[in-house]
Design a protein around this nucleic acid. Structure first.
Lengths: 338, 338
DNA sequence: GCCTGGCACTCTGTGCGTTCGAGTGCCAGC
DNA sequence: GCTGGCACTCGAACGCACAGAGTGCCAGGC
């Protein structure tokens, strides 16, 4: 096990490196932190830390920089979560007050988070798995063409065009609309399939094909709707990534464009508490030089979605974690109120 | 006026510079294009072109690069719009086929455009100002609570909650729904206000307040939703910007994050035909080193929204313009079909 | 046993001078 | 009006020396 002082040296290295972006040497360390020992001693400690894989030197005779493993230890054992300053708290509140709808809340949140952490922010829309159906509407646009409109209790609306296998009269349409609504309104998405399963049977033979088509489109829409959306912001902060950044930034931008990757990224985060993935801990290769700080948020006690930031492994972990946690809390409050 | 050959020299300079990203000299020019004259002659022509402001030298004794003014002339007079290759055409069709709803169409379009041009793509959602109403639906959620759903001919759906001043029965609701639809379906948004103006009068006194409320919400929705949304994609293509790119890319990313800026950008484009804004022609400072190629698209003969790409001024204008135009056409077709 | 000062060594970054080559401008001649 | 020739300019590339920061190791002291 590492001695107390060696941990202290690691902490100092992480802090200095995060601040200066430059490899930190033994002399500079003793000058900036009063460790109570001489550079030579620190050098010995550094040698041990390097053997253990917590720090590395870019070149012989350069200072040390933390490895992913070093950051990991730092985050787990050495760093707390820095509470926000009160101006920051106020900024959060001001920023989120006055949001008019869900899109607006999510949009403001992502901007806020990006601004606060000076990194790339990712916010997932509240998940719909627990949503219920408020209304299903069927409109006849042409004899063999319908439009399906699905309204959820979170105020989201989805619509789909349907080409019917056969013309469908107004009477069966009204009938279908009424039956459909009486069965599914107020129900959870997940329960809908069983509830409508036997509907086609109660229609005339010639209409059954159409009814089946409508139902399959409805079910499809429900499934798709459950797929979670997310938005990102603050990509211009990627420019603060480092010096060798053209080569670093490319895969990150690419990864950020793929919703699937991001969803997986946030999804990996455990439900409770904050998750920090450092460098190679991220499954996606393009994000191997980044760290992801994510946390769940929600209107009640349950987390309904996640939010977080993506930044260079060399980031201010305590500050970032503090900001992410605080934003998640405030957003949860806002959602609970509305 | 510039002689034929001088224009030819300018064209050659633009083409070479776009290809190589390096200042092009007189000797290289004569080797790569058979201009039929010697380097010395080309040098004289270059001197003239430089005097006129079409090209510039980064340093004395370096080759020339086109200026914004040079690109402008190139686009206006020297370059056509390059038609797409047939594999590209097929790619477009395959890419857009199978889109399930408007979000999907727009999402696919932006990815397609980014991929095709290898630049940043911007697609505006079909605007509602010139759109027509396909259907208005009124749903009763509670005795004094309605939901208004507005469906446009571009497939966009907007919904609003309405708290009624008084309970509203099913019969007047059906009545209102029918009358509303018979008056506004197929009409343009702008015409709706007059068309519904006198509707309240034909209802019982007790229902008039509610009808007025519904109408005012409808009109509000029409106005509000004229605010246009847009999405962007292909930001990772920014990494192909150039060598000094860290400094270039920053303001571009920032500009791209501001919807307002982008909307203005697309809005500046004239209604008919394709618009190319080169470098400093862009009002926004952050985009002074980029060019924007934009064009309107729509389901019918009229454009209902714009789409385009943002890239370095040093871009392949004919190819980009070809791709943008082709995509706009196909999207228009897709929209018209649905 | 651990810390310390000292010392030799190893790199990188920087500044400087030189060279090389691409490119220019200009001029005289065809 | 085009061309070949020529002197000139200037940036990129290279080599080189040097300063500075940092390391590893060792012998000595508490």
């Amino acid at each position: 096990m590492l001695s107390e002082r060696r941990l202290e040296v690691l902490r100092a290295i992480v802090q200095d490196y995060v601040g200066t972006e430059e490899p930190v040497g033994s002399k500079a360390l003793t000058e900036r932190h009063n460790l109570g020992v001489s550079p030579a001693t620190v050098r010995n400690d550094m040698a041990v830390l390097e053997d253990e894989g917590f720090i590395a030197q870019p070149h012989t005779s350069a200072g040390r920089i933390p490895t992913d493993k070093g950051y990991r230890l730092f985050v787990d054992k050495l760093a707390g979560v820095k509470p926000l300053s009160s101006p920051e708290r106020r900024a959060i509140q001001n920023f989120l007050v006055g949001a008019v709808d869900l899109d607006d809340v999510v949009g403001r949140t992502v901007r806020l988070l990006a601004q606060l952490t000076r990194q790339v922010a990712v916010v997932q829309y509240p998940s719909l798995t627990r949503s219920t159906v408020r209304h299903v509407e069927l409109l006849s646009l042409a004899p063999a063409r319908l439009m399906l409109v699905l309204i959820t209790d979170t105020g989201r609306v989805e619509q789909r065009m349907i080409d019917c296998p056969a013309p469908f009269g107004d009477a069966p349409l009204a009938d279908l609309r009424a039956r459909l609504n009486s069965r599914v309104v107020g129900r959870r998405f997940a329960d809908v399939p069983q509830l409508v399963q036997d509907l086609p049977e109660s229609f005339e033979t010639e209409d059954r094909a159409t009814v089946s088509t409508v139902l399959s489109v409805l079910l499809e829409t429900l499934v798709e709707e459950t797929e979670e959306r997310l938005i990102i912001g603050g990509t211009s902060n990627l420019t603060r990534f480092g010096h060798d950044f053209p080569v670093m930034i490319r895969p990150v931008l690419e990864a950020l464009e793929e919703q699937v990757v991001l969803l997986k990224l946030l999804g990996e985060a455990t439900d409770s508490g904050m998750t920090v993935r450092i460098g190679h801990e991220n499954a996606h290769e393009g994000l191997n030089s980044t760290s992801v700080v994510a946390v769940g948020y929600g209107s009640g006690d349950e987390a309904v979605a996640k939010l977080g930031v993506v930044g260079p492994t060399r980031m201010d972990y305590p500050g970032t974690m503090g900001a992410v946690r605080a934003v998640a809390r405030y957003v949860g409050q806002i959602l609970a109120e509305s």
